[in-house]
Amino acid sequence: MPYEWSPKQPDAAPQWQLSLWPYRSLLRKDFVLFIGATALLVSLPLITVLGTAVLWALLPFFAMMIAGLWFALHVSYRRGEILEEFTVGETQAALVRHNPTGDRQEWKANRYWVTVHMHPKGGPVENYITLRGGDREVEIGAFLDAAERLALYDDLKRALRPV
């Protein structure tokens, strides 16, 4: 699951904290291997034209293809650098979202009034989860897939039960 509950510490200020992030199927360390393997496989047909003028005509297109692939994966990584931290203390609950652009979005509410809601079909994604507290309703985990949001919803319902 691309989220993690922090262990409860007896004397810590927050009772618990939940960190969420988008799932990454291609890790950063595998990025170099993928680009290298792709370049190697695509360059195999170029062996037949080695030493001819055709190689020089095809080489710029080969370089543009590798550069385009690298750029597309880099943009995908930048858009996926989202971190949501949901912290619940004795009296207050706070959700902080760190966006890829570097800005932060914060939401705070009285823990007693915080409720979790799931919108199975009405939200922008299936099983859309929101937190409602005070006068605002905020989304949480919109980047997770539908099954992960179901599991998150159950975990949040259990964790936000009145003490």
Rank of each mutant, 00 (worst) to 15 (best):
M1L: 09
E4N: 13
E4K: 14
S6Y: 13
S6V: 14
S6T: 15
Q9G: 13
A12V: 11
A13L: 14
Q15K: 07
W16Y: 02
L18Q: 02
W21I: 09
P22A: 00
Y23P: 08
R24V: 11
S25N: 08
L26E: 04
L27T: 14
L27K: 15
R28C: 06
K29I: 11
D30A: 11
F31A: 10
F34R: 13
A37H: 13
T38F: 11
A39V: 11
A39S: 14
A39Q: 08
L41E: 06
V42W: 14
V42G: 03
P45K: 01
P45R: 00
L46M: 07
T48R: 06
A53Y: 09
A53Q: 08
L55I: 05
L58Y: 12
F62E: 07
M65P: 11
I66Y: 08
A67I: 08
A67W: 08
L69M: 10
L69Y: 02
W70Y: 13
A72V: 09
A72F: 10
Y77P: 10
Y77L: 07
Y77W: 10
R78N: 11
L83V: 15
E84G: 05
V88L: 04
V88D: 00
G89S: 06
G89T: 04
G89N: 03
E90V: 13
L95T: 03
V96M: 08
R97M: 01
H98V: 05
Q105T: 13
E106D: 13
W107S: 02
K108R: 12
A109P: 01
R111K: 02
Y112P: 01
Y112K: 02
W113Q: 01
P120Y: 01
V125S: 03
N127T: 09
N127P: 09
Y128N: 04
Y128E: 02
I129D: 04
G134H: 04
V138Q: 04
V138I: 05
I140S: 03
G141H: 03
A142P: 10
F143K: 03
L144H: 07
A146K: 00
A146F: 07
A146T: 12
A147Y: 06
A147M: 00
E148R: 04
L150E: 13
Y153H: 15
D154H: 07
D155W: 12
K157M: 14
R158E: 09
R158D: 10
R158L: 11
L160G: 02
R161I: 00
P162T: 05
V163D: 12
